[in-house]
Design a protein around this nucleic acid. Structure first.
Length: 595
RNA sequence: GGGACUGUAGUUCAACCGGUUAGAGCACUGCCCUGUCACGGCAGAAGUUGCGGGUUCGAAUCCCGUCAGUCCCGCCA
């Protein structure tokens, strides 16, 4: 049907007669000659229609409109010297149309402009409803291409350089306890029983290691029925890896090589290796989060010991009840941040309270080095404590010290939030900077105060550090997360491969033998048939592509995403189904619309 | 489940403190224009201001409800 792609034409094609197919990106009618920008996946080529040379096809050219699909045959010519278009890769040549065939016209007004020249932002609900038009636009077609390039780079590296085997795992699998809410699928042939869609291929990839797979990977679709966010869709894609007989350091090194290969291939960036590492404890202490954006400073300082005996009850009380007092020191904050913003009603106050803080105490370091703050703080600090405070926080004249006091989690959460907001507002983040680092030594478990039990922080198959087996509630896990500009893009661990340790972990998180047997009996049994030491990692592919594309939502990296209400505006899914279908599945809806 | 923002022509936006005929760019229709590349010129058509109700002499504007989209909290091993 065609001989070339529009976007591929170059000067060495001159004098060839070609046939092109594509969409009318734009038409410029000069009364006589008409120019048509013809677009296909490869790019844009300029078609020229001359009424004197080719009156028949020119009559058709006059009827063309944006987004018509046409087929054009003509000879490639060098453009006149004063008509070159340096903005187009094809801008040295043009095609004199001899035949134009309309393959498909546009019958209705376009819901929005599709032309690559158009960069207006369009309402997202319209884009989603007419996704096939949105995907024609430059931004989305580039994003899809980038996603493809990333996946291609991944496959090349894992298959050609690292001996990974791609294996598909079931989409219809069994529901597992813990974790996110499952998407369930009723079983027609097993009345009353349900499959679950996988939240990740976790158990299967471990079983593949028991099966001798040695190195497995999969671009795996995962499903979690939780509420959506800009970076969360109910179905999303993981790059899932698992490997046998490798230490944590070996796994990390291999993954650094993989990530570097991706950046090199799609962005031409050489990442310095090894990537920096922080322990979980260090990250929490210095940044208040396990995924710090270390493109800028503003590190936290723990001053709990200095103010433990202070007469200011907000500080001493926090320490006494097992919490902490930490400081976010802001250089030049004295001038840049007003009291109004810190006090009730201010934007920074709101940020802190959203994170659970009751408020923000603060100290301003005046140019003469004196402290400027409320009497209740000032009057309860002796000279020694003041000096210690300044030293610990690195405070200089002009610094603003923002305090968080209370339980440790809230203090960290609120100061992390303030740190991020201020880092962005004060222009401390260099948008060109790439920041990749590992967080290691996560705790095995964390206390769920609501349910009054220990929960696996990563997942219950994560291996505890061999030195910490005595008490798993305080044990470090052999787990690692990869953080990219303050977002978690990957996380993994060494897995437990001995039944005794697996049972001990289950016991720690309050899972009875009977329950463990019922839910994971197949895994525990597998561990008794010769299990290699193994570990792995999973990357959020949508999120990685989002960051590489400079987008702020993973929807812009997914061809057909869902809205925040988990609907598809394109297909109108989900939908009701025939009563007969439900009956076959032995299912009845209990839903009754409210009056 | 909760908080916030948005919704005006096909589309992107405007419309001041509630004021009488809701404007502009692009797209669309017609006419003109032979070297443009976001071509240009002239003319035109196009509106249930998301939907429902209320306040008011008067509502795109204020209030209540509702629908849709977005961002966030909860939730997401």
């Amino acid at each position: 049907m065609r001989t070339h792609y529009c976007g591929d034409l170059r000067s060495h094609h001159i004098d060839e007669t070609v046939t092109l197919c594509g969409w009318v990106d734009r038409r410029r009618d000069h009364g006589g000659v008409i120019f048509i920008d013809l677009r296909d996946r490869a790019g844009i080529a300029q078609i020229v229609s001359d009424p004197e040379r080719t009156p028949d096809s020119h009559a058709i050219a006059e009827t063309l409109r944006n987004e018509y699909v046409i087929r054009v045959t003509g000879r490639i010519s060098q453009r006149p010297a004063d008509s070159l278009n340096l903005k187009l890769p094809t801008g040295e040549v043009e095609i004199y149309a001899e035949q134009i065939e309309i393959l498909n016209a546009v019958a209705k007004p376009l819901p929005f402009q599709v032309s690559t020249a158009d960069t207006e932002s369009v309402r997202e609900d319209l884009r989603l409803k007419y996704r096939y038009l949105d995907l024609r636009r430059a931004r989305m077609s580039q994003n899809l291409r980038l996603r493809h390039e990333v996946v291609k780079a991944i496959r090349r590296f894992l298959e050609d350089e690292a001996h990974f085997l791609e294996v598909e795992t079931p989409i219809l699998t069994r529901s597992t306890p813990e974790g996110a809410r499952d998407y369930l699928v009723p079983s027609r042939v097993n009345p009353g029983e349900w499959y679950a869609l996988p939240q990740s291929p976790q158990l299967f990839k471990q079983l593949l290691m028991v099966a001798g797979g040695d190195r497995y990977y999969q671009i795996a679709r995962c499903f979690r029925d939780e509420d959506l966010r800009a970076d969360r869709q109910p179905e999303f894609t993981q790059l899932d890896l698992e490997m046998s007989f490798m230490s944590q350091d070996e796994i990390i090194a291999l993954n650094e090589a993989l990530v570097s290969h991706i950046f090199k291939t799609v962005r031409g960036i050489e990442l310095p290796r090894p990537f920096p590492r922080l322990t979980y404890a260090e990250a929490m202490a210095r940044y208040g989060t396990d995924r710090p954006d270390t493109r800028f400073g503003l590190e936290l300082a723990d001053v709990s010991d200095i103010v433990a005996t202070s007469g200011f009850k907000v500080f001493s009380g926090a320490v006494k009840s097992g919490g902490r007092v930490k400081v976010l020191p802001i250089p030049h904050g004295n001038d840049q941040i007003s009291n109004v913003r810190i006090k009730p009603g201010g934007d920074l106050f709101k940020e802190a309270t959203l994170a659970g803080a009751k408020g923000i105490a603060y100290i301003r370091v005046r140019d003469d080095g004196e402290l400027d703050t409320i009497g209740a703080i000032k009057d309860n600090l002796d000279a020694e404590q003041k000096a210690q405070l300044l030293e610990r926080t690195g405070a200089q004249p002009g610094h603003l010290l923002l305090f968080g006091a209370g339980d440790t989690a809230t203090v960290n959460k609120s100061l992390d939030r303030l740190r991020q907001v201020l880092g962005a507002q004060l222009g401390l983040i260099d948008p060109e900077k790439l920041n990749l680092l590992w967080i290691t030594d996560f705790p095995m478990v964390e206390w769920n105060a609501d349910e009054k039990r220990w929960e696996a922080l990563h997942h219950p198959f994560t291996a505890p550090h061999p030195d910490d087996l005595a008490d798993l509630t305080t044990a470090r896990a052999q787990a690692y997360d990869l953080v990219y500009n303050g977002l978690e893009v990957g996380g993994g661990s060494l897995r437990i491969y001995q039944r005794e340790i697996q049972e001990k972990v289950f016991a720690t998180i309050g899972m009875s033998d009977a329950e463990a047997q019922a839910k994971f009996g197949f895994l525990l049994e597998a561990f008794e048939y010769g299990t290699p030491p193994h570990g792995g990692i999973a990357y959020g592919l949508d999120r990685l592509v989002m960051l590489l594309a400079g987008e702020e939502s993973i929807r812009d990296t997914i061809a057909f995403p869902k809205t925040q209400q988990a609907r598809s505006l394109l297909t109108a899914a989900p939908s009701t189904v025939d009563e007969r279908q439900l009956k076959e599945l032995h299912v009845a809806s209990t839903y009754t619309p409210e009056e």
